[in-house]
């Protein structure tokens, strides 16, 4: 029998994500060996209004851009980065 271990990650929310959630960050418990794209899927399922941003959102873990299949670890800080517009 395999047991599903859970890890805790912090999700930083910005721009449209922050507006929809009305929060700057949330904490999620997810199964270990989850990929960062799985987290984005959970977020979109929770808030379907964000669906149109899904394919435009880049992902960062611990302040670095990562590919969608990056495996997250317990305690990681994940950021959802919708299209940027600094300058």
């Amino acid at each position: 029998m395999t047991r599903d271990f859970l890890i805790t990650v912090k999700i930083k929310l910005f721009a449209i994500y922050q507006e929809i959630y009305q929060q700057e960050e949330i904490t999620l418990k997810i199964s270990e060996k989850s990929q960062v794209k799985d987290i984005l899927k959970i977020i979109i399922q929770e808030k379907p209004a964000l669906k149109k941003w899904e394919n435009l959102t880049k992902l960062a873990v611990n302040l670095e851009f990562v590919s969608p299949d990056f495996e997250v670890k317990d305690g990681d800080e994940i950021a959802l980065i919708p299209p940027v517009s600094g300058g």
């Binding site: 910005f14 721009a15 919708p82 940027v84 517009s85 600094g86 300058g87």
Partner: peptide, 14 residues
């Protein structure tokens, strides 16, 4: 510098 900042820096304006 400014072109790369505009494309990559996680900064947003409304």
């Amino acid at each position: 510098a400014i072109d790369t900042l505009k494309h990559n820096a996680p900064i947003w304006k409304k």
